[in-house]
Design a binder for these strands. Structure first.
Lengths: 348, 348
DNA sequence: CTGAAAGCGCTAACAG
DNA sequence: CTGTTAGCGCTTTCAG
């Protein structure tokens, strides 16, 4: 009854390297050698240390180690995306994870929901945890604040969104060219009045897609004024309402270009509600799950988010290994014709 | 020319608390007080310290802090799921993230792909990073190895998969009851020969769904032998092939029960290929994106993965706050009839 | 092949 | 209100 709080189910703390050393009858440096697979440990000593480790269920504290380790690496990356529950970002996440895990690096992932305030807070927290690299899909265009972090040797790679006022690696899709190609596809199917359903415009890729759309119209000699545009569609409900509105106008378009995933889903719902899914053509930027199972199948400009994630992570590791020149990598999207984009215009 | 390597673009290291103290002309403890919002700092001192902090772009090293902090918390959770790129797990992840972020806790997320070897490695790495809590969808049934970690005070919560040989919080769906209900739904629509398309069986939830399926058959007085079963469908391609095979048998079933997401997608493809999507009824466990847009709409037992993630994280925090009794929480799935499950059997 | 001493960046405990 | 000292668990350096 000397120790007061010594209940049986009391939480036992983690064993330390010292506990292991004592139990194995060696110095702590020897234990350190064993856990880091360093040479100069006799087979016998090695065995004794291993026995002590497993007896105590010892787990080296990686954070404590990296405090002293030369380079001070934490073997952790920070990943900041729009929303980890989103199909696109989930795939990016997985791409980053796969490459990171080859380097024994874990990934701290966070969602932003296009929230500017959150952006700064989350990135700050990641930095305070001393991540070795940052892979970001940021909301704010101006990222000059991160320059000082780069100078501290932390690689920063931007995915899908293009930052301003910073010289960094960027991994994006060919937004402008892809949108142009998708729009041209509709034009090739004889459409002249094409509605544009756009996502919120602050982010660079939204602007680029819109430009590509206009490029295609211009190339075909179609006046932009013939094409109704509804922008800033935050979610599929907004897209749904906008599509209903656009298609019930007197001069309704005969085809739709949807600039994003959720927008496409809202538009598809609206088309079905109006019974127009076989009358009005639609091409969506970003593929959608089951896009091949709906009728008609969704014609989509499919991005490759998994690959984007892999490449972004690979760039971060390249910087860590000494690469100093920024790259802007474009992962091409491909047009998948499945029916919805090949519907000819209704005769009037 | 005294310092050799002093190139202009050389990486400047992080400023330390000592640098800040020196620049502000105070002791390090005062800086510590400021960054931790502790009392007993005069307004003037506070201002000076803040100035030094921003001048040096100082960022407290959270890992170093937690080494000494009482409790030693890292404000980090580990999340281990099947695949972060999967719609279901992405939603779980987001649920965990949302609750964690309310507590200022970051989430280290990792994918397992049902790989047993990976499971042990990844959980070990998370533990070495001293996560404050673990939320796991494990592959191996026996989780007794984690008991020692629990005793060290690390809350462990299992999501979607039920572990053996450990007393821990568990968050699952009503797999058995849900499967029974889905099957009963088909029976209510006069089906008597219902095919079962199952996922790999090692994991508890697969078994439970199968049991629920059998429960419903038994309750309706249908011999289990009338119902063809194909199990162990690893992905949608396997499910696709299995469905084709099952539906071209002489005694093909008139309805299908699909036990999981990817299986459902494969089955839907097969049905379309055979042109039977309006002939053969199907109910899927787990909803599928765009399940309402295909024709007929997919009748699904929809789980609530986001909620499961939230609840799992909440349990972890509850344990951290002293709760000691394990809960088994069942998040009910709901049947969404959309057409595919209400197709009557073909007349023979 | 092995270990003792110093110190990473920070917070705890105390003394002013 | 403020600063000093010790030490978290580990790696580094260097002396055996």
């Amino acid at each position: 009854m000397t120790t007061p709080d010594a209940g049986a189910s009391q939480a036992r703390a983690h064993a330390t390297i010292r506990d292991v050393a004592k139990l194995a009858g060696v110095g702590i440096k020897t234990v350190s050698r064993v856990i880091n697979d360093e040479p100069n440990v006799s087979a016998l000593t090695h065995r004794n240390v291993m026995r002590a480790i497993s007896e105590l269920n010892y787990r080296p504290n990686y954070n404590a180690g990296s405090l002293r380790r030369s380079g001070g690496k934490t073997q952790t990356f920070g990943l900041v995306v729009g929303n980890v529950a989103n199909r696109f970002w989930g795939a990016v996440h997985r791409g980053v994870e796969d490459v990171a895990s080859e380097h024994n690096v874990a990934v701290l992932a966070a969602s932003l929901d296009d929230d500017t305030a959150r952006e700064e807070r989350i990135i700050g927290e990641l930095l305070s945890r001393r991540v070795d690299g940052l892979i970001l899909a940021t909301v704010r265009p101006d990222q000059s604040a991160l320059v000082v972090e780069q100078q501290r040797g932390i690689p920063i790679v931007f995915v899908d969104r293009e930052p301003e006022n910073i010289d960094a690696d960027v991994v994006v899709t060919n937004n402008r060219g892809g949108a142009e190609q998708a729009t041209a596809h509709l034009i090739a199917h004889r459409h002249r009045r094409i509605g544009y359903l756009g996502e919120p415009g602050g982010m660079s890729q939204a602007q680029r897609r819109r430009m590509g759309f206009n490029d295609a119209l211009a190339a075909a000699g179609i006046a932009a004024s013939d094409s109704p545009v509804i922008d800033d569609l935050r979610d599929s409900d907004a897209a749904h309402a906008a599509t209903l509105e656009m298609l019930t106008r007197a001069d309704a378009p005969t085809a739709l270009f949807s600039s994003q995933n959720h927008v496409t889903i809202g538009a598809l719902h609206a088309l079905r509600e109006l019974g127009l899914q076989r009358e009005i053509a639609i091409v969506g930027f970003n593929d959608v799950a089951l896009g091949d199972l709906i009728e008609p199948g969704l014609t989509a400009m499919a991005q490759n988010p998994y690959q984007m994630g892999r490449i972004a992570a690979a760039r971060a590791f390249a910087r860590l290994e000494g690469d100093t020149v920024s790259q802007r990598i474009v992962v091409r999207s491909v047009l998948i014709p499945r029916g919805s984009g090949e519907i000819p215009p209704r005769r009037t």
